[in-house]
Design a protein around this nucleic acid. Structure first.
Length: 106
DNA sequence: GGAACGGCTAAGG
DNA sequence: GCCTTAGCCGTTC
């Protein structure tokens, strides 16, 4: 357990936290922002361990496709959508309009 | 210290 | 539109 020891995780949390309401990002984008373009899954690992779901809105992180991905469980997706919609994100058929809300301007 | 897991991505069938 | 294959990386047990 590296609990907070790894810069990577902290970096991920930092970026996710910086995502403004009404915007979303992809695992790949985060990985790229951290100079680890291939570590998308690693980002997922960090998110899974997300110790501060309040500060780290994982629901703003989606797949490169615009799909929501997971969120703890099949129901989580619905909650994700609800939250995103509440923030002004256009969600269609469980997918996000990336061309409209993709935030990669870290 | 090492193996398995995971909320992935990209490319092909 | 969905599944498979291959590659890559950090966390967890």
């Amino acid at each position: 357990m590296k609990s907070k020891g790894s810069v990577f995780s902290q970096r991920v949390y930092g970026l996710v936290t910086r995502i403004p309401a009404g915007k979303v990002t992809t695992y790949g984008s985060i990985a790229r922002a951290l100079h680890r373009p291939q570590a998308a899954h690693a980002v997922g690992a960090v998110m899974r361990a997300n110790p501060t779901p309040i500060v780290v809105p994982c629901h703003r992180v989606v797949m490169s496709d615009g799909r929501l991905g997971g969120y703890g469980g099949p129901k989580g997706s619905e909650r994700k959508v609800a939250l995103l919609k509440g923030e002004g994100v256009r969600v269609i058929n469980g997918k996000i309009d990336l061309s409209r809300h993709l935030f990669k301007d870290f």
